Amino acid sequence: MTTIRDTTAPPVEGEFRQQGNRSTGGKLLAILGVSALVLTAVNLTASISLYRAASEVRGVEKRLEELAAFEKRIIERLDLVNTGMQNRVHELNRDFDMRLGLVNEAMADFDRGLSRLRSEIGLGAASLQSDLPVETIVPLSEPAAEEEPSVIAADPPRPRRKSAPKPVSPAYQRIELPDGKVTYRKVQ
């Protein structure tokens, strides 16, 4: 610091202050201090909010991982059920084809037996026609009203009983189509 000495000037005791500079400097320091406190509070609030959001994101990621594992288990079960259903449909289709083949064979046997029976009846009727008078001859295509044909079936087919429809959840409506198919529609 430089000291200037003037011997002719009166000595001044105390401090020299300027009033205009002190009031603006103090206000400026107060404004800067308050703004620093406000910025600190905003930064603390933002950091707390970011920490909470990060915690929630970690929780959601963990749940998504669990959901992915759950989805994988469901897909595996659906694949298992789908495979089982496809196998069951395949077995039913094979069984149906086998039974249809048996029915076709039985019908062919029935036709052969019927043809043989017609030929035997035709031969027997021809020999009877030559012995009987003309007015008592009955054509083979129309049997007499009081006579019944003496054809005995080896094993008459049993009528198939329709089972009662299985009870269905009341959330579904049962619809029978004209071709005999049954469908179910979900009731809203």
Score class of each variant (00 low, 15 high):
86 Q>Y: 11
155 D>I: 07
115 S>C: 07
161 R>I: 14
148 E>C: 10
86 Q>K: 10
132 L>E: 15
99 R>V: 05
152 I>Y: 05
130 S>F: 11
89 V>L: 14
88 R>N: 06
125 A>F: 14
169 S>T: 06
145 A>K: 11
130 S>R: 11
153 A>G: 05
103 V>E: 09
119 S>K: 09
142 E>S: 06
164 A>I: 09
129 Q>C: 08
126 A>M: 10
84 G>S: 07
134 V>K: 12
135 E>F: 02
86 Q>M: 07
131 D>W: 13
96 F>C: 05
85 M>P: 02
82 N>M: 10
154 A>R: 13
78 L>T: 05
109 D>I: 02
157 P>A: 00
133 P>Y: 00
114 L>Q: 09
156 P>G: 00
96 F>K: 05
118 R>D: 03
91 E>V: 08
131 D>M: 15
99 R>A: 10
128 L>K: 07
90 H>I: 03
135 E>P: 03
107 M>T: 02
124 G>R: 11
148 E>K: 15
146 E>N: 08
124 G>V: 04
172 Y>G: 02
166 K>G: 10
94 R>T: 13
145 A>N: 08
139 P>R: 01
87 N>T: 14
80 L>V: 07
140 L>E: 03
113 G>D: 10
134 V>E: 15
98 M>S: 11
149 P>R: 10
145 A>F: 01
119 S>E: 13
92 L>G: 03
91 E>C: 00
98 M>A: 15
99 R>M: 13
76 E>M: 02
110 F>W: 05
82 N>Y: 12
